[in-house]
Design a protein around this nucleic acid. Structure first.
Lengths: 237, 237
DNA sequence: ACCTGAACACCGTTCAAGT
DNA sequence: ACCTGAACACCGTTCAAGT
């Protein structure tokens, strides 16, 4: 592909990067269920079928979305490639990096917590093997044994994905066909009579404390992982 | 509605209960995205449009699915209506009750973790106010203050839904359009070269330890909730 | 090489019509 | 009262055709 081949009359209107970038914008605005090939085409100023020349299917398009979003985190300088001030600091930065992309793209984030095609057996699933590899290498470099590193991966991602999936679902996201479930409440608060405690504590129950909860749970998790390291990492059980 | 009105010639082929029950079976077999009104009609031996005489829309049908599933847990005698051997035991039974329905209906379960129409402000969302009310009443009866009860609700459901959503997603469920992402791995393990630690620890990383992880996290959570009770419940902060 | 138009096999839902 | 048939406005994807 030389500049001669492309240069003259008609530069291609679309690129894989443009298609994926526009898809991310679209999902952030209208949610995952709102994205259809026809509507994305409309936004791109192109017939829906033109998209298939740059991306083989809707699923492949979503693959691309995850890849680009993960790369955003990779570009974040505060997310370290390897531990430098201890593994605790390393994990905290990693957690905040993931939380940042979750809050930046709440409606795309559920796609990140899916089975990676190259390793569908990974549990919990995380659609970025780059991230998993970074995690495991980091802990091993800090003296974690293999079992301790895997146990830590489990506890860490289970907490992280679980928490963020939930946080994102109440902030914005349609996880699927699920959350399209009536946005417009018809019966505002009448039907709460059967549930006095719920009604009474409504103010507290509806407050968004995701941030402080996240920090607190993260702290507790780190002390649990410390136990895993010494129990499981020093000698083989 | 007397037996006279209904009795004679043609008993109605369909009931709301039959429609919802069949929908649950269908989702358990084919997943949420597989359920369409037309296919459900086919299974019911009826034209798709007949369903609308018993349920006003697809969303209302899914509402019914959640309701029936929650009632299954309500019928479970080991899930207590109120604490009888201390709140710890009460919460453990509640957690196991929810986990049981999650594992019984993995593909329906994501519907449970959605905004309830009567209380869309509830955080984290849980589509059964009966359950929320039981939780709050139980803790208050055991001496939790209002703030402590709400904090405990947050920590408990955040852990429970997060963990189970993840467990269910790797066991079976299509959470939406997400997990339909290629079931059939084309490149089985070739593309793992860039990720040596992932490849090396594959055996451990693919083991399903959901059960023991659940129990361990639950234990740690209970001791965190104990702290909430004494910190936040005895005097107002 | 890139885009279009028509077509196919699907959706949820409405509405007039049948029994 | 309950079900059907046809119709409407959507889907993702294929394929032959245009430039």
């Amino acid at each position: 592909v030389t500049s001669k081949d492309v240069g003259e009359g008609r530069p291609p209107r679309l690129t894989k990067a443009i298609v994926i970038g526009t898809a991310i914008e679209f999902i952030d605005e209208h949610g995952l269920p709102g994205l259809s090939m026809r509507r994305l085409g409309e936004r791109l100023g192109v017939e829906a079928m033109a998209i298939y020349h740059h991306v083989p299917s809707r699923e492949a398009l979503l693959d691309g979305v995850v890849e680009v979003i993960i790369d955003e985190m990779r570009a974040d300088p505060s997310v370290l490639e390897e531990p430098q001030q201890g593994w605790q600091h390393f994990l905290v930065q990693l957690a905040h990096g993931v939380r940042r992309i979750a809050l930046d793209h709440p409606r795309c984030f559920p796609l990140v917590a899916a089975r990676p095609p190259e390793a569908p057996w990974l549990r919990p699933p995380l659609r970025s093997l780059y991230w998993v590899e970074t995690f495991l290498n980091g802990l091993r470099a800090e003296g974690f044994g293999d079992d301790a590193a895997v146990d830590a991966y489990r506890a860490f991602t289970s907490f992280l994905l679980g928490h963020l999936l939930l946080e994102v679902s109440l902030h914005d996201a349609d996880v699927g066909p699920l959350d399209v479930l009536d946005e417009n409440p018809d019966q505002p608060s009448g039907s709460l009579e059967a549930f006095p405690s719920v009604r009474e504590l409504q103010a507290s129950l509806s407050a968004d404390k995701s941030g402080s909860e996240f920090e607190e749970s993260l702290e507790h998790l780190l002390s649990r992982i410390t136990l895993m390291k010494t129990e499981n990492g020093t000698f083989t059980p």
